[in-house]
Write a protein that binds this DNA or RNA. Structure first.
Lengths: 244, 244
DNA sequence: TATGCCTCCTTAGAGGCTCTAGGAATTCTA
DNA sequence: TAGAATTCCTAGAGCCTCTAAGGAGGCATA
C-alpha cells in the first residue's frame, strides 16, 4: 500500500479544514462577526495565526468558505423539507420548503446575516472567477425555490401576464436569466416566480436583519400571511403549518 | 461682547464636526465601508488620529453619527417630494414619496447600505439609552410613510381586514406599536400599512444590497409594479412617474 | 538505508487599526 | 494677567492581517 500514507495526510488536512470552519462558526455565533479573525480562529484550535494561511489564502477566503457552508446547509434544510413531502401535493411541498427556509434562518440568525452580508463578489472580480464555491452554493439555493415553481407550472399552470403586457426591459432581463439557467422557462412564468421570491425572501431578510423589530417581535404570522398570498398567486390551496 | 468668544469656539467645533462627517462619507463612497477608520478620517482632515476622540467617543459613535446624517437626508428627500406635490392628489403625493425613497437609495447605495447595516442597537443597550439621534432619525424616517397612510385613511378609507379576522398575536403587536406612536391608528389600518411598507422597503433593500442582481440589472420597472400593487391595495389610482 | 523534498507549523516583524495617557499650546474667563 | 478649559500632539499598548525565514517531521527514491 503505497498510496495509503498520502491519503492519510489528505485526510488530516480535511479534518483541520473542517475544524477551522467549525471554530469560525462558533466564534460567529457566540461573539459576533467581528470576532471571526484569523488569529482568534487559530487560538481556538491551538495554532499560531500564520499557520492558518496554509489552509486559507486570506481572511476573506475563510469568510467565503464559511459562508458557502451556511448556504449549503440552508439549501439542504429546504431540500430535506421538500423531500419529506414527496408524497404530498405540490402546494404542501412548496409550503414546507418555504417554511424550512424561515426556520433555518431564524434558528441561525448570525449565519443568515453573514450570507446576506456577503453577496456575489463585486462585479469586476466576478468576471475573472465566476465559479467560486460561494457562487455555486448561491445558485443551488435559488434553484430549490425556482425548480418547484417550474414543476408547479408544468403540472398545473397558474395565471401569468401576457408577455406583451410585460415591461420590455423586464422581459429582456428575464430572458437573459432564463438562458443562463439553461432552462426552458417562459419569461412570464419566471416573472411570477421572481415576484413570489422577492416577497418571501425580502420579508425574511427584513425579519432576520432586524429591520422590522420597531413594530413586530414575532413575524411567524406575517410570514404565514405572505405564504397565503403566494398560494393565491400560484393557484394553490393554502395548508396551515403542522402544529409544533 | 463677552459671549462672542465662547460662541466663536463653539462655531469652530461645529465646523470641525461637519468636516469629520464629510470626510467619513467621502471615504465611504470612494473606498468602501472598511476605509472609514478613525485614522483615515483624521488623515483626510489633516489631524492626528487620537485628536478625533475629542469629537467622537469611539469609532462606533462616529459611524452612528454619520448613519443618522444619512437617515435624515433620506427622510428629507422623501418629505421634499411629498411637499412638492402638496397640491396633487393623495395618490400622487404617496407615489412621489415612495419614488423619492428609491431615487435616494439608488443614488447613494453605500449610504443606504450603511443605514441598513446599522439597525437599532442591540436590544440590551437600547433599553438604557432609547433616544440616540440614530433612533430618532429612524423613527422620523418611518413616519414619513406612515403619516401619509394615516392621512389617506382619514380622507378615503381603503379596505382593511376585520380586526377579529386578524391573527391575535399580530393584533397585539400592532396595538403595542400604535401606543408607542401615540397615534389613534386602528390596528387593521396599521396592518395594511405595514404590509405595504414591507413590500416596498423589502424590495428596495434587496435591490440596493445586491440580492437580486443574479437576475435583474434594472429594478425600476419592478419597483413601479410594486407601487401599482400598493395603489390597488390602498384604493388609489396609479400615476406613472414623470418622464425624466 | 540514507538523502532530499514537501508539508506543517513555528517565531519575527512590518504596517495597519482602536483607544488611553500625558504633555504642550492655545484660548477663554475672571 | 493668572488660572481653567479646550484642542491638539506624540508615545505606546494591544489588537489585527499577512509575509518571510526556518525547523521538525513524514514520504519517496537512489
Amino acid at each position: 500500500m503505497a498510496v495509503q500514507p498520502a491519503r492519510r495526510r489528505e485526510k488530516l488536512r480535511q479534518a483541520t479544514l473542517t475544524e477551522i470552519r467549525e471554530a469560525a462558526r462558533r466564534l460567529l455565533t457566540t461573539q459576533g462577526p467581528a470576532a471571526v479573525t484569523i488569529n482568534a480562529v487559530a487560538r481556538q484550535i491551538g495554532m499560531s495565526g500564520p499557520a492558518l494561511y496554509h489552509y486559507f489564502a486570506s481572511h476573506d477566503d475563510l469568510v467565503a468558505a464559511v459562508t458557502a457552508d451556511f448556504l449549503r446547509e440552508l439549501t439542504a434544510a429546504m431540500q430535506a423539507a421538500r423531500d419529506a413531502h414527496a408524497a404530498g401535493s405540490p402546494a404542501e411541498r412548496l409550503l414546507a420548503t418555504c417554511r424550512a427556509m424561515r426556520e433555518w434562518a431564524t434558528a441561525h440568525p448570525a449565519e443568515f446575516g453573514w450570507i446576506f452580508a456577503s453577496p456575489i463578489p463585486t462585479t469586476a472580480s466576478a468576471r475573472h472567477r465566476p465559479d467560486t464555491p460561494r457562487n455555486q452554493a448561491g445558485r443551488d439555493f435559488e434553484l430549490v425555490f425556482l425548480q418547484q415553481i417550474e414543476e408547479l407550472w408544468a403540472s398545473a399552470p397558474f395565471p401569468v401576464p401576457a408577455p406583451e403586457d410585460m415591461d420590455p426591459s423586464v422581459r429582456e432581463q428575464l430572458r437573459a436569466y432564463a438562458t443562463t439557467l439553461g432552462r426552458e422557462l417562459p419569461v412570464e412564468v419566471l416573472h411570477v416566480a421572481m415576484a413570489c421570491w422577492i416577497r418571501l425572501y425580502g420579508l425574511l431578510c427584513m425579519e432576520v436583519l432586524n429591520q422590522l423589530d420597531f413594530v413586530y417581535s414575532d413575524l411567524a404570522p406575517i410570514y404565514e400571511e405572505t405564504l397565503r398570498d403566494l398560494t393565491a398567486m400560484l393557484g394553490l390551496d393554502y395548508h396551515p403549518p403542522a402544529p409544533a
